[in-house]
Amino acid sequence: MKQNLFQEKNAITSKAEYLSALGRHLTWHFPFPQVLEILADYQEYLSIDHEQGATMETIVAQWGSPKSVADRLLEESPEAKPRFYKHLAFWLCVFLVASYVYFHVTYGAYIFLAISSFSLFGFFHLGKLASIEHKFAVRDESPKKSSVFIGGIPRPLLIVHCALPVFVLLVERLARYVIRHVDVLPKHIGPLQTGYAIGYISCLFQILVLLLLIWTMFMTLCTSVHYFPAAVHALGALLFIMETRGIFSSMDLSATGDTLLYICIQCLAIYGLGIALAFFFQMLLSMLYASKDDAKNQSAQGQSSSQDNV
């Protein structure tokens, strides 16, 4: 029931949508080449139904929802189960270790950011869905609806991450300006003191990230483990914002703007490191898949090489 509420609330109106939803359910459980194989089969079968005049509604009723298809396949594929990142316990451990590091180690915030970037790899992993959507939507004639997901990555998340470096640079410019013109700046913004106003704005930002964290945690518990990387990542961002606020509030404002620039560059460097780490984990995973599939293909080829025509 919970899953119906969150995952299947939109009726599937095209074959491409069905296939990309199926791909989304399968990606975390099966190696990528197998996902493509299954999707190719389903594309073939749905096309036949489609040619015979079946509507999307009857097709879904006949074959079941993408979630139920994935469930049936999982029931029949015991080897698809032990994937370490599929278990909530694994992500909880990452979460606990990262939190411990944050509170008990000097420069914990930086290490935390690096660890939480590990969760970013989850998003890159979902980026494979971009290729699925591309591959299986091409032959589908029905128009594709615009979605909140771009290649499996939520559009807001993508925008936030792209805008972050720009935001950091803007803050740096603003801070330089404030230091230079501190005497002529207004002491009050409306009925509020300027200092408090800035405090409230950053508080609001922090609350927004906190809400994001609560939402992603809620979605993890209610729908799918897919949301857990986002939750860890949101916590990383929240703690990092708190840390940055701490640095700024305890900073000697008479220091030159270069100190500020240094902090901004440091932030960007860590941000880049996070993304690099995430890519590294992604590559590692792909290599694991590749070696397993090669071994399987070699044994399968021996059996079927003699039967290539009908």
Binding site: Y42, G64, E75, S77
Partner: peptide, 10 residues
Amino acid sequence: SESTFYAILR
């Protein structure tokens, strides 16, 4: 459902 047969076949 058809999907059950597909899964078994696979």
